[in-house]
Simulated scan of single mutants.
Amino acid sequence: MLKKAVFLADPDNKNISRVFDETVMGRLNSQVQLFPEWIHPGNANSYINELADVEIAFSTWGLPLFTVDELKAYLPNLKALFYAAGTVQRFARDYIARDCIVVSTWAANAVPVAEYTVAQIVLANKGFYQTAPLYKSSYKASKELSKVFPGNYEAKIGILGAGMIGRLVIEMLRPYELQVDVFDPFLPDAAAAELGVRKTDLHDIFANCDVISNHLANLPTTVGILNKQHFNLMKPHSTFINTGRGAQLVEADLIHALREDSTRTALLDVTHPEPVAEDSPFIHLENVILTPHIAGSIGNEVARMGHYAAAECERYCAGLPLKYGVTLKMLETMA
């Protein structure tokens, strides 16, 4: 007999059908018996009898928040939540407190972020962001400016955070023969050696790297961790990339550093607040490139997360070890 399962989502959640597309739903329907209604705190009590023996739940962005008491009342036999999206920080502890396995497909969401980051690093090392706009006013000046950039052989890249995304970026950079320096207090020396990177501190990275990319975990301890003592060290013609979290920067300090040396460049896919305020200097600074949080899964990429969730469910139903289960210990350091 198939295990009973349910989707946890508000009725207007448009992400469910995108992440769990027809192909993913075909996989799920062969594995579990899905309840026909999406469940949220507003309707759970109406289906309290039907939900009593539900063992598995699926969700994605927009997961409605249940309290521990509500989970106990409405989903007393829930054993596994497969979350087809990224961070689980806002709800995972409540589910784990109910002895419910929490699975995040952050590994699937890491793929497009890493691809995006590597593309930006390659372009930054070629001076793309500085020379392209200059070309329209002066080809000669644009060509001359291109000579100051290192290209993609033996350039120095700084990676902040060697979690799922940071490690994937490092792996994808291997063919480029770059020197990769990493700041991550939680990265063991043996793991750094296996990755082929040099562990160092923030000051060293900001002072010496041609491109610096932020992938630090989104934790209270990382809020404002990047500030003037780092940004003021950036080399001329260096580039800072942020696909992590905007709150990890003291943005006023980054703005000051960019104004102080206009050859420095910032590529910001995330800001705090998001979007930036209309009067933010980021809007007007020519050495700032803003993108609307596109590094993560967009378009067809979101279905990859649904497939990861389906694959994890297959392993769960077969009694096999899960690849992407989340523990309380992991929540201390993961994004």
Rank of each mutant, 00 (worst) to 15 (best):
M1C: 03
K4M: 08
K4S: 13
K14C: 06
N15R: 04
I16F: 12
S17V: 07
R18W: 15
T23D: 14
M25S: 06
G26Q: 09
L28G: 03
N29V: 02
Q31M: 14
W38T: 07
N49Q: 14
N49I: 09
E50P: 04
A52P: 03
T60R: 07
G62H: 06
L63D: 07
L71M: 10
A84T: 07
A85N: 08
A92N: 03
A92R: 11
I96L: 14
A97M: 09
I101N: 06
A107R: 10
A107L: 06
V111P: 01
Q120D: 07
I121E: 11
V122H: 00
A124P: 02
A124M: 05
F128Y: 15
Y129S: 03
Q130A: 15
L134M: 15
S137K: 06
K147E: 13
G151T: 02
A155D: 09
I159K: 00
M164F: 01
I165H: 03
I170N: 14
M172W: 13
R174A: 14
Y176M: 04
L178R: 02
D181V: 07
F186D: 06
P188T: 08
A191M: 11
A193Q: 14
E194W: 15
G196R: 08
G196F: 12
D201M: 06
L202G: 01
H203C: 05
I205A: 06
A217D: 06
L219N: 07
V223I: 15
H230T: 03
M234F: 12
M234H: 14
T239A: 02
T243S: 13
G244K: 04
G246M: 09
E251H: 00
A257K: 01
L258E: 13
R259A: 03
S262F: 03
T263R: 00
R264P: 07
R264F: 15
P273S: 12
D279S: 15
S280G: 04
L285K: 13
V288K: 11
I294W: 00
C313D: 06
E314T: 10
E314V: 01
L322D: 02
G325Q: 13
K329G: 10
L331R: 12
